[in-house]
């Protein structure tokens, strides 16, 4: 990665929150196991392996087998956290995710690491901008897209606590800790309003939420009060929050994902059949060229300034 280390800029790599949480859960509950595809390093699971050597199962470079093994471990009473680069965990193993996890309702937790365009320079084979679309169409698997370290920890804890298959999309792109009240609660199926406003709504998730907040600040200075909604829970999704957002008359969605089938599509599905309103869907239009993650985000219009411009265009248009 060409960008500087996230922490140096006050930014966090959500993988760190993931593994710290998994280690804490593992210490309390010996049913917690981790399954990897030669991805101990990229999943940052070295610490988990050292603490619980028999509970780190490396199946080698074999993603279909990895997901099936995760489902089998669940059958044997384990809570398996199956971790691998999101592009392979979902794309390579999609039928195992469907049949062995979602349709079987296995108690498996799939953790897609380095999702979106985190592997920017490595090209579209390693980008994972289709994963949410693929998984949310199944319906029978919970899909979570946390936005910062706190929410990543909450998502992992919620995944471990529930009985059933979960996909957690974990970024490696640096993100700030989002401002939240001390009593904030994470709940599967519930959106989080991070900034109030009734002139328009920005619905975002994952690495884009911090950009949406910046956009809202810029818009506020211009007299436009945009609500910022963090939609970490993609499946189930908070329909009520979306319908409330539609009442503002203008929704901009922004996601580190394809514009086909992801957050924008999910919001449009609900809005179009209930309270149609103007919408702009920001994301990736298809396969992306090479370039750093930041470059690709900027190029696709996933910057605070372009999110703000998109809101202005809807509100003033």
């Amino acid at each position: 990665m060409s960008s500087p280390a996230p922490q140096a800029q006050g930014l966090f790599d959500c993988r760190d929150a993931y593994v710290k949480t998994l280690e804490a859960l593992g210490a309390d509950d010996d049913r917690i196991v981790a399954v990897v595809n030669d991805s101990v390093g990229s999943s940052k699971l070295g610490g988990f392996r050292d603490k619980f050597p028999t509970r780190l199962i490396n199946v080698g470079i074999a993603e279909q087998n990895m997901v099936g093994v995760g489902a089998g471990l669940a059958n044997g009473g384990k809570i398996a956290f199956v971790s691998g680069a999101s592009c392979f965990l979902t794309g390579r193993s999609l039928e195992q995710v469907k049949a062995d996890c979602a349709y079987s309702q296995a108690n498996v937790k799939l953790c897609g690491i380095s999702s979106g365009v985190a592997y920017g320079e490595l090209g579209p084979t390693h980008h994972s901008i289709e994963d949410v679309a693929w998984l949310r169409t199944m319906g029978d698997i919970t899909v979570l897209v946390p936005a910062d370290p706190w929410e990543t920890e909450q998502a992992i804890r919620a995944a471990a606590a529930m009985d059933g298959p979960v996909f957690v999309r974990i970024s490696r792109m640096g993100v700030p800790a989002l401002p939240r009240p001390a009593d904030a609660v994470f709940e599967i199926g519930k959106a989080e309003v991070l900034h109030q406003g009734n002139d328009a709504a920005i619905i975002a998730n994952g690495t884009v939420v911090c950009r949406a907040l910046e956009a809202a600040a810029e818009l506020a200075a211009q007299g436009i009060n945009a609500r910022v909604i963090n939609m970490a829970s993609m499946s189930p999704i908070d329909e009520a929050a979306i319908l409330e957002a539609a009442k503002t008359g203008a929704i901009v969605t922004a996601e580190e994902h394809s514009v086909r089938g992801g957050l924008g599509s999910a919001v449009a599905e609900i809005v179009s059949q209930n309270t149609p309103c103007r919408m702009k869907i920001l994301g990736f239009a298809g396969f992306q060229p090479t370039g750093s993650a930041e470059f690709l985000m900027e190029r696709a219009g996933l910057s605070a300034s372009n999110i703000a411009a998109s809101v202005r265009a809807l509100v003033q248009g």
Partner: peptide, 23 residues
């Protein structure tokens, strides 16, 4: 486990066997 598409049973069985081995 739900089967139908081929090549799914053995990986799941391997996972169960690993759970048994751990326990």
């Amino acid at each position: 486990t739900n089967t139908g598409p081929l090549g799914h049973g053995l990986p799941v069985a391997v996972g169960i066997a690993i759970a048994g081995q751990i326990d």
